[in-house]
Design a protein around this nucleic acid. Structure first.
Lengths: 151, 151
DNA sequence: CGTGAAAAATACTCGCT
DNA sequence: AGCGAGTATTTTTCACG
């Protein structure tokens, strides 16, 4: 990860569809050089993929929330099982196994508050390993698409 | 958003760099048709951008956490100010204004637990509007890159 | 390891249905 | 709106420095 790699990573985070040519021009190297670097970044697992960012409203998912969940017992089996079950649900965007009062954080996006309520009742309350949960509706959010190396 | 649009959106979420040609082939339409659809999806704001997914470890950010923050007073001014301040920090990946006991959720990624501690002390404790906060280290996580329409 | 030029593939335009 | 042939760019390869 030298300076050129970092610059490539930054640019591809900003716009994954820019041509290799314009990328090379911006960074002041030959297109073939740039292409080789990008390939190495793939092989090394630095670049994990390229994904379109879609407006949730267009997918009929205007309502988002975080649901914190406490599990019993918080064993590996229970945690892994719950994680897999949640991830399989279409409403779920992401799952996080966390340390703290709660064991789990589930990021969901749904068509309405009604759908959220149904999700909580049908998908969480049902499960015996869920001892408690708390949901936080997201009023507003902002996410970075370009993340710089630290240190 | 007919069936073709949905298919395009799904495919571009899965791999944003696939050529228009292969995309058209998969969906059984002419490349020019496909290109026109993609452009319309842009214009309508359905596709907001294309971003490379980078391994956080490669950016020297192996430690992630959610920090829940309570603000006083939870006025628009205070919330917006805090949001902007947090978003400007390099450690911050995303910010969420939420409803519930806490007012804010900050997603951070840092080089180490030490860095996280410094972040909490120097960037949160310092601020007068922060009345309390709680941090949850992320042990494990999974995020979907392809999100389907609901209903 | 980076480069430049040739070859192959792709994007993009546009007149037509 | 969707299509396909033609043109313009781009990607990709490869022999050389």
């Amino acid at each position: 990860m030298d300076e050129l790699d970092s610059a490539i990573v930054r640019e591809l985070q900003q716009d994954a569809r820019q041509t290799n040519r314009s990328l090379a021009q911006k960074l002041g190297v030959a297109p073939s050089t740039c292409l080789e670097r990008v390939r190495l970044l793939h092989r090394r697992g630095v670049v994990r993929g390229y994904h379109a960012d879609i407006d949730p409203a267009a997918l009929n998912r205007p309502v988002e929330a975080f649901v914190s969940v406490q599990l019993r017992p918080p064993s590996r089996q229970v945690i892994e099982g719950f994680k897999a079950a949640m991830f399989a649900l279409p409403e779920v965007l992401a799952v996080y196994v966390v340390a703290g009062e709660q064991d789990f954080l589930v990021h969901v996006s749904v068509p309405s508050l009604d759908t959220l309520h149904s999700f909580l009742i049908d998908r969480l309350t049902q499960r015996r390993e869920v001892t408690s949960f708390r949901s936080q509706i997201i009023y507003d959010s902002a996410r970075k698409h370009v993340v710089a190396p630290l240190d």
